[in-house]
Amino acid sequence: MFRTLQRIIPPIIVLILATLGALDIQLPGLKYSDTQLISAMLALIAIDAFVDRVDSSRAVERELGKIHQRLTVSDSSGIRFAQRIEQEKIEDLIGSARKTLWIAGPSNDGIVQRLEEIRDRLQHGVQVRILMVDPTDELIEWYGRHAVGPTYRLSDPAGRTRAKVRLEDNRDRLIELKDVVGGTYEMRVLERIMWFGFIVIDAGERDQRMDVQVYMYKRSADTAPILRLNSSSDAKWWQIFMEQYELYWAEARNVVE
């Protein structure tokens, strides 16, 4: 029997078991044979081995979970329909910026509602860029020929006048962010129609991200598809849209001194 034990457990355990068996240990009212003691020790060893295996299994499971999470993030691209007023999404994106926060959109209505979050990022040293269209009469009329939706009524002169006032107010409120102490702030306006909106997080960093909203002809911006791009798994599309953003930015006029 002990020859078998020597093959499956360390020799020191064999010595302990043999000693305990020879002692024929007794407690008041109880008597344990060497076989019972050996069985008990083997049971303890088995439990200990089981616990070790469970811990190892959990460690492996945690590592697999981390790998799955990384793979999920790296393959997180895709087109989904979203609403422009989806403030939780915008707030999460803005709050996640650590190095850079680049935002571009025709009106930036949703962004204006997140001024406090942008101020917070600036105070934490984040580089912020804001881009929107220049609210000229001509440009708003051009948008009226292409865009539809509940936010702006651009089909008549009165609607275009209200839209211009609102965009001018958005522009002025965004310009005021220049006074926030911390990171760097730039704002420009583009005298062209913007067919895409952008939120670029931490450009140039390893975990950089980009949301692109595609504005479609005679379709409401509230149902415009959003492409969430990863620079690794979507390298080609990332490059295409980054070049488009940079072209917008390069041709825009600076409004912050």
Rank of each mutant, 00 (worst) to 15 (best):
I201L: 12
Y217V: 01
E205G: 09
Q213G: 02
M216Q: 11
P225Y: 07
L227S: 02
S233I: 04
Q208G: 11
T223V: 15
P225F: 09
R219D: 06
L229C: 09
P225R: 09
D234P: 10
G197D: 11
I201E: 08
V212A: 00
D222G: 05
D202M: 04
V212L: 02
Y217N: 05
S231K: 15
R228Q: 14
F196E: 01
R209H: 07
V200W: 05
D202K: 03
R228H: 15
F198P: 07
D222H: 15
E205I: 05
D222Q: 15
D234F: 01
S231Y: 08
D222F: 13
Q213H: 03
S233T: 15
S220K: 06
V200K: 01
D211V: 01
D207N: 15
G197M: 04
D211Y: 03
R228Y: 10
I226F: 15
D234V: 03
R219H: 14
I199W: 08
S231R: 14
S220P: 11
L227K: 04
D234K: 06
D211H: 10
S231L: 04
F196A: 01
S231M: 06
Y217C: 01
Y215D: 01
D222P: 12
T223H: 13
S220D: 10
S220C: 05
R209P: 02
I199F: 02
I199T: 11
L229D: 04
R228M: 09
A235P: 05
D234Q: 08
P225M: 06
F196I: 00
R228L: 06
Q208D: 09
D202T: 08
G204C: 06
D234W: 03
S231Q: 14
N230T: 05
Y217Q: 07
D234G: 08
R206C: 06
P225S: 10
A224Y: 10
A224V: 11
S233F: 13
M216V: 00
D211P: 00
K236F: 10
M216R: 13
W195Y: 08
T223P: 00
D222W: 08
V214E: 01
A221W: 04
S231W: 09
R206P: 05
K218L: 14
E205D: 13
E205Y: 07
T223M: 14
I201H: 02
F196W: 04
G204F: 03
G204R: 03
G197V: 04
S231I: 08
W195L: 11
S233E: 14
D222K: 11
I199Q: 03
A235S: 14
R219N: 12
D207V: 10
Y215W: 05
N230K: 06
L229P: 03
Y217E: 08
I226A: 03
A224C: 10
N230W: 02
E205T: 14
D211N: 11
M210T: 03
Q208Y: 07
R206L: 12
R219S: 10
W195G: 12
F196N: 08
A203S: 11
